[in-house]
Amino acid sequence: MTEQNRPRERVLDAGALRALAHPLRVRLFDLLSQYGAQTASGLATLTGESTGATSYHLRALARHDLIREVEGRGTARERWWERPVGAITLTNPELAETPAGRAVQEAVASETLTLRQQQLMRFVRDGWEEAPDWRDATLIATASARLTSAQMADLSARLQAVIDETTERYRDQTGDDVRVVTMRADVFPLPADGVAS
């Protein structure tokens, strides 16, 4: 996919961020992003919540176009939901100018990152035995380098390009040996004095 054809990253407005600022909604959005279309009852099984709760929160996400009903699939009683293809950003520069805007962005980002960390820690705890064939393909790495903000921006763009290219190439791949793989790229400056505030 060329840069011209790639869907633009959606910057979530205040309403969409507020709709997402609920732990169960973040989890439902994440499951639809990672595993594809699901029903409310299927998501209830995955989350341990009631079908009524998942249905309610799915409709709230749909009102802000964060997810949509899958056309031509399901019945009036069993609706299928999916997350539209395309990147989103959980930060909105305009919202960052107000305390309420910063708070909603922080709530969504915090819940999203908590879920990501839980997934990583579950893999560290159980994944080696559950997926021994995948052990050598796993990368959990940390490195530090002294960079300018421009160099960090270049690194971030190159990492994102690799992630985007891989996601686009294999998005719809199926097969017995195919599993959902999560990709993380953590690139950020450390505190200048070495002490986190």
Rank of each mutant, 00 (worst) to 15 (best):
E69W: 00
V104M: 01
Q105N: 00
E94A: 15
L66T: 00
S110K: 06
L58K: 00
E71K: 10
L113T: 07
A107G: 01
A100L: 07
R79Y: 04
V108W: 02
G86Y: 12
L95I: 13
A76P: 09
G101D: 04
E69T: 11
R59A: 14
A60Q: 15
W80G: 12
R59K: 15
L58F: 03
V108N: 05
V108H: 06
E71M: 05
L66Q: 02
R77F: 01
L95K: 15
D65C: 13
L66S: 03
L115S: 07
E82Y: 01
E97Y: 01
P93M: 06
E82M: 13
L90I: 07
A107Q: 11
R73F: 02
E69S: 09
Q105Y: 00
L66K: 00
G101C: 05
T91E: 11
R68F: 07
P84H: 09
R59Y: 10
L90E: 04
Q117T: 11
G101Y: 05
E111G: 01
T89W: 05
N92G: 13
E106M: 01
Q105I: 01
L66Y: 03
L66H: 00
I67R: 00
V70L: 05
L95P: 15
L113V: 07
V108M: 04
T89C: 10
S110D: 06
Q118M: 02
L61M: 11
P84F: 06
I67A: 03
A107D: 08
A76H: 11
A60G: 12
I67G: 02
T89Y: 09
L113Y: 08
T91K: 10
R79M: 09
E71P: 01
L66R: 00
L113R: 09
R68E: 15
L66C: 04
E94I: 09
A96T: 14
V85I: 09
E94K: 13
E78A: 13
P93R: 08
P99D: 10
W80P: 13
